[in-house]
């Protein structure tokens, strides 16, 4: 599983990255966390408001900092 954080590196993006990392550790998932900071790559995924979260190339959330629990729910296929 590949978890991607999309954002150009503002404070909110780092916060979302932290929450995602905690969620992955807590669930013990064999997931790889990747930061996407290139604007071309972010746009190519159809995202206009950052930070965004994508799993295996599919965008799951845009424009907000999800809490650790919200990330967990998405990782477990809740949404």
């Amino acid at each position: 599983m590949k978890v991607q954080i999309l954002g150009s590196g503002c404070a909110k993006c780092r916060l979302l990255e932290d929450h995602a990392r905690q969620a992955i550790v807590e669930l013990g998932l064999p997931a790889e966390l990747e930061k996407v900071t290139e604007i071309e790559a972010i746009m190519a995924m159809g995202v206009m408001s950052t930070p965004a979260l994508a799993i295996d190339g599919k965008v799951k959330s845009v424009g907000r900092v999800l809490s650790k629990d919200q990330v967990s729910a998405i990782l477990q296929g809740g949404k």
């Binding site: 954002g7 150009s8 404070a11 909110k12 746009m43 206009m48 408001s49």
Partner: peptide
């Protein structure tokens, strides 16, 4: 529309594109 200056660039590009 919620707007934060940190997403001004993707927003601008998204609109133009």
């Amino acid at each position: 529309t919620p707007f934060c200056s940190c997403s001004a660039v993707p927003l601008f590009i998204g609109f133009i594109e």
